[in-house]
Design a protein around this nucleic acid. Sequence first.
DNA 1: TAGTGGTCTAGACCACCTT
DNA 2: AGGTGGTCTAGACCACTAG
Lengths: 257, 257
Amino acid sequence: MAKATTKKTAAGKITGVSKRAPGASVPLYAQVEEIIRQRLIDNYWNPGEALPSEIQLAAELGVSQGTVRKALNDMVAENLLVRRQGRGTFVSEHTERRALFLFFNLIGEDGSRTMPVSQVKACEHRKATAEERDRLNLAKGAEVITVQRVRSLRGEPTIVDRVTVSRALFPDLGGDVKLPENLYRFYQGEYGITITKAQEQVRAVSATPEEAQLLGLETGAPLLEIDRISLSLDARPVEWRVSRCNTSQHTYVAERG
Amino acid sequence: MAKATTKKTAAGKITGVSKRAPGASVPLYAQVEEIIRQRLIDNYWNPGEALPSEIQLAAELGVSQGTVRKALNDMVAENLLVRRQGRGTFVSEHTERRALFLFFNLIGEDGSRTMPVSQVKACEHRKATAEERDRLNLAKGAEVITVQRVRSLRGEPTIVDRVTVSRALFPDLGGDVKLPENLYRFYQGEYGITITKAQEQVRAVSATPEEAQLLGLETGAPLLEIDRISLSLDARPVEWRVSRCNTSQHTYVAERG
DNA sequence: TAGTGGTCTAGACCACCTT
DNA sequence: AGGTGGTCTAGACCACTAG
């Protein structure tokens, strides 16, 4: 929408939009957001880097400082940017803290959050199944990479998971390099793909014999299954992850409202 | 905080605060928020009712329209208010839609959301247990009311739950009146208590014989347990609810990021 | 001291809704 | 036509950070 009615000159100034256009005109601040969002997608600025100041952006885009401010504040609310008074506005990074509080939701009975320690059990690349193509929005014949892990909390094997990504987006993933604990930071640093949102579906299931063995449980023990699709900055599904968790010592948490 | 440094005159004007106070002065918009929040807690305006216009509020409180606007927008983001262009700003109501999208998170395999149909199995009042006092922040000797239900989706018994509230806050609850499906609207309409947030802890558990019988499952079948504390406008825990769900035909959903 | 974001104001104009 | 919220601007001053 905004993209269709907006053109960036070399200087990035907003043109091609009549501020007085009747009807379906997109607000200026939304156009500013769209421009900045596109620059983030293009890695025009890198994670952790400072954006130009509000005044500079306003001059560059030909709008007032207040309009830039609203756009930036909206994007802070989306966790895309971080503002620090007296210092500047920065591109969000997938830090340890962020991974833990935004994308890891199994906490101890005492409320403690700790990063798991993972062991890779299998890693392969092959043609995507119909379900994988459906979940990751891939074309027929596309290839995927899957990683299977066992993840331990406080030394206890607690989670078995399977991570699936498109091989086209993540070439060589799981090849020579050892996979780090924080995959989202890895995606951001190595492939320039930033995960911003995730949709989770949770069910109670029974442990298969293999899962039971890996987690030190009896076959049929209740496990919490978390089925997650992660979305990148441009709102495309880029990772499908299914985790099965022993929740006898940990609980999955969510806030509502 | 703001309350300590703020006084409302008969007209509600903000006084007792020096805008120039060095150090820990609370921003004006935050003080405005606090005043409006307190009026909501006091039911000074009723759910669904329109607030005075921005201009009127600004005049009444002795601040600019822009400051009131920021305060109101913040509270819209918290789901406390709803703004409708050309009409006004309104106090949020616990409508069916809101209950369904904010506080009911079991959806069908096809993504459909439907309100359950509940059957009350038991309803009693008694002294709170230690755990109930802990979860609901009650004093020793306080009384609670508990309701046990079986809830059906598409005609299939899917959830058994137990709802616990303080008898002091909800006198006569479950007495003569039939309990409606949307309890939060009932709390708001009958007791003037508005639920704004909930914290949920989710686990996988095994069905007890009683639960299995009620849900038409075999003993030991995996169930999803949702343990929820609901908070009122003034951030106090007012309802403790434990639901155990058959997730073979439905899934619990959450968004992250 | 200079530069950044944070707060606050005042005013103009627009889009929408009601009457 | 009159009132409401929505957008946009311009400018002042404050608080924090850096060199």
